[in-house]
Structure formats: structure tokens, C-alpha cells
Design a protein around this nucleic acid. Structure first.
Lengths: 267, 267
DNA sequence: GTTCCGAGTTTCATTATTTGAAACTCAGTT
DNA sequence: AACTGAGTTTCAAATAATGAAACTCGGAAC
């Protein structure tokens, strides 16, 4: 079932770290305790250890914990070494200059979309996304495009984990509706977000695929209904596909890790 | 007395994580083993656990490990909750537009400068490209400015930990030279980087201080000797100080961690 | 083709760490 | 003065981590 087994003490500690991060704000020990499976002294020791290790920061005044700065340092290394971002950067810069709209680079992380880079439009639209932020896979352009080109078994797994929360009247709210959409996207080679996540926000997205057709990530151009429409965005498809192809080519040359391939030829 | 490293199993596992990150590239198990104090099976189990937990990613093709995507997600929470960056963002945007040069926002993390946000001269907003990067405290504008306004005891501790590596002929290479410089910076209220870290790169920096004079972080405007000179940069001091003040004010209003009354010893 | 080699992996008895019920501290109530 | 409850410490029992040794297995050497 859903729960990945926490392996050992380290797994438990990281579970606590996730809990703190999930709050989205500095959190008191008692709040953590209320939402934790661990007994008080156990949780207490984990929080102490993580704070010592700078994985959490403690505000002595308010007596709250928040994810710590050590994570920011570590994530920089992660971003540089295990994401497409550094490789894609020059291509995204060029794309951004060419289209003059907000550009996103995303990867699939478990059942969610992880935004790993972004370029803002010249006149910035206030948007929810940033590098490191996660979003739903079933109602974002990048999410749907990545799913559309993923293996059926992976899609099944991921669809099971979607909440299908209805953000707007356009949100695809059932697995079937999503599967239909994925099929159309696969046929077209690109996909839209038709205000499915945020009203007024539309986007066009393409997958970044290896030669063998494995999904590395996705690229999108985002705009607003007040600035353009789907037909307008569709005009960006060629340059998006061109950019995606360049990124994929660079990725091959760099021999990018098969980061989510497990059990390929092993028994 | 202080244990420098290793509280429990969690501490050891995080030590391994740091080791991987320190390589700056995907690393083989044997390379890790060579630089590790842990026996082979112990290290092996840590690496397995961290990989299971997505704190490391494994490339089965090349048999290498790199910091994992989970860190990127966690760091986003850290960046939003325990750094000045989200709060400072609008002010830095404004500053960036006004000066048209590269702008950095940094905090002190142990004995190092941690860059938490950046605006490039030409292109707006690039996340995590520089955010998360660390630099030396003794030879960067932001580093020296933060030290200049820190408590003497903290400065002593930090100076002990500096390498005083000589990057350029201008690098301050002794504690005494640095202390002199810090005194001058404190008197002026702002500081320069006179090509001390990279040839041709100069900057002017100001501290971000609370009402009580506690250092929250630092702001800098960076340019090159081919574009301007120290006198030119000095012209940015008023707008830098203004921006720093606005950030400090917002920090107080938002009552963000790491602010307010000095050691409350009420009786 | 066989042997050797060594990186990576597993085993298991030993050892050290983690665990959590209970007890304690202490500032702020009642 | 007694109560309360969040946060902290204690300590014997339960559990997990440890690492020497042994094993795998693909490739290099003979």
C-alpha cells in the first residue's frame, strides 16, 4: 500500500523532516507531536538530532522548528547533479528570450510534478511555481505531457495516487477523463493546460524524451487568458519541441542518469 | 563540551550525504569508501538507506550516486521558511531593476556565506542556480559586511575557521588584515569586494540589520572592473541601504524567525 | 578456458544505539 | 499554594547498527 517503509533510524528521522516541511510554516514541537506516530521522547530526540545537524532550524523565541539551511546547500548539489536543469539552462534561456513568456522545466518525482527551473515573463505574472515546488501531475501541462509518454504501468501507479482535486471548472477530475486526455496528448506530441489548475492561467507543454522514448522531463510556456489563447500558445510548439530535442541531445551526450529506472534487466 | 560531528546513526548518515554532495559530481561507491571513515558494509548500508529515501539518486548504468531529488523539495520548504529570501524578494526585484547589475542576497551559515537569492544583470530571476551556493566569508563583499556587524565572539569563531586562501593579489590573507577591514566597514556602514575573490569582479555590500543591530543577512551589487569601478559602485550605497532597511522592516512585521529582542532574560 | 582479482554485496554474532514509560522541571495558570 | 501541560531527562529493555569474514560475479590476466 501507500506507505514506503521507513528503513531504520535514518528513515524515521527523515520522516520527521518531511513532516516539518509539510507544515509549510514554522511548527511547534507539540504540533508535530500531535501529527506524529512517534512517542514524545522519541520525536523529541529526532527533532534535537535534526536541529543539531542543521537539517532543522530552531527559533528559540517562538519555539518553532522549520527546515534548515543545510538543506539549501545540499539541494544545490542535488539540483546541479541529479536534475536536467544545469544541462537545460542555456536552451531554456534561449527559449525564454524567444517567446517572452514564463517558461517551466519540470521532472516527475513520484506521483508529482517537480519544477526544477523557471524563467519569468518580462512582466511577471504572479504564479505559484518555483524551483523545488511540487504540483499535481493530472492538471498541469507538464504533468500531463510527462504522463502521456510514460509507461502504462507507471501511469497506473501515478493515477492511483492522484487526488483529483477540482481546482477549476476545467480540471479533469476522473482517471478516465485523464486517460482520454493523455491519449490525445500522445497522438499530438504536446498538451495544454486549459485553466485546469488556476483560472486564467493556460500553458502549452512538450515532453523531453530520450531516443528510446523515455521521459526525462517536460517544458512548458505559460501565459494568461488575458494575454493570449490556446491557439496563440500552439504557435510555440515548434520552438518548444526544438528546445526539448536539444536538451535531450545534450542529456545523451552527458549520459544523463536513468534516475527512475528500476528493475530494467535485473531479476 | 561540543561534539563536532556524529550524533547517532542519523548524524553518520548525513555525514555520508555531505560526502556525496562534496564530490560535486556523481560518485562511485569505491570512491566514497576511499574517503570515508566507515567500514565497507557500514558505508554500503548508509548509501542504500539514503538511496531508498531518495536523498541520494543512483545511476545504475554508471553505478554512481548523487544527491537526490528529495533534497530539492525539502530545500524549497527550507528556502521559504527559514531564509530571508521570500520576504526580500520584491525588494530585490526593485533593486535589480533600479541598478541593472547583478544583485545577491546572502546569509551567514556557520563560517561561510550562503547565497540565498540572486538577480542577474541581464536576465531576471534564476532560482537555485546560485541560491544554495556557498562562498568564503573573508573575501566576499557580503561575507565581510556580515562579519563586520556580528558579535566579536562570533567573529573570532568564524575567523578561526577561515582558510585564508589567496584567490587574487587583493585577497586579505591574514586575520589581522581582515579585522582591520571589518572595523573600517563597520565605521562606514558598507563594504567592497576589491577583486578579492575573482579578478575583475567587484562589488559593494551592505548588511541587513534588525533594530537591535543583529545581522540578518547582506545585500550586494556586483559588477566588473570593465563596466565600472569602486566609486561607481559606491553610488549604489543609498539604494542598497534603503532596500536593506525595507527588508529588515518586513522581517520584523512578518516576525520571521531569527529576529527580535536580544536574549530575553526576564526575571 | 581457467584462474585471479576486486568492486560490490550478504551474513551473523557481537556491540552499541535507540526506545518509550515514567518521572521530572518549570513557567504560567487557577 | 496547587494545578497544568509543554518540554525535557532517566534508564532498563528492546532493537538496530556494526564490521570481520565470507560470498558473488563480471572482467582481466594467464
Amino acid at each position: 500500500m501507500g506507505r514506503v517503509t521507513g528503513d531504520g533510524t535514518v528513515g524515521k528521522a527523515l520522516e520527521v523532516l518531511d513532516q516539518v516541511a509539510a507544515f509549510g510554516r514554522p511548527v511547534k514541537f507539540s504540533e508535530l507531536l500531535a501529527g506524529s506516530a512517534f512517542p514524545k521522547p522519541t520525536l523529541y530526540r529526532f527533532v534535537q538530532t535534526l536541529t543539531n545537524q542543521q537539517m532543522l532550524s530552531y527559533d528559540p523565541e517562538r519555539q518553532t522548528y522549520a527546515p534548515g539551511v543545510r538543506l539549501v546547500r545540499l539541494a544545490h548539489a542535488a539540483w546541479e547533479q541529479s536534475t536536467l536543469a544545469p544541462l537545460a539552462r542555456p536552451h531554456i534561456d534561449a527559449l525564454s528570450r524567444a517567446v517572452g513568456e514564463t517558461v517551466h522545466l519540470a521532472q516527475l518525482d513520484h506521483a508529482q510534478v517537480l519544477y526544477i527551473d523557471k524563467r519569468n515573463a518580462g512582466n511577471p505574472v504572479q504564479m505559484y511555481s518555483q524551483a523545488g515546488k511540487v504540483g499535481p501531475a493530472y492538471c498541469t501541462g507538464v504533468g500531463k505531457v510527462m504522463l502521456a509518454f510514460s509507461d502504462a504501468s507507471l501511469v497506473d501507479t501515478i493515477i492511483e495516487q492522484q487526488s483529483f482535486h477540482v481546482f477549476t471548472p476545467q480540471t479533469l477530475s476522473t482517471p478516465d477523463a485523464l486517460r482520454d486526455e493523455l491519449q490525445k496528448i500522445k497522438a499530438n506530441g504536446y498538451g495544454f493546460d486549459r485553466e485546469e489548475h488556476e483560472p486564467g492561467i493556460i500553458c502549452v507543454a512538450v515532453p523531453i524524451l530520450t531516443e528510446n522514448g523515455r521521459v526525462l522531463g517536460a517544458l512548458s510556456v505559460t501565459s494568461t487568458t488575458s494575454r493570449t489563447n490556446l491557439a496563440g500558445l500552439e504557435g510555440y510548439v515548434p520552438i518548444l519541441q526544438d528546445t526539448a530535442e536539444k536538451i535531450a541531445r545534450d542529456a545523451r551526450n552527458w549520459s544523463f542518469p536513468d534516475y527512475d529506472t528500476k528493475e530494467t534487466t535485473r531479476t
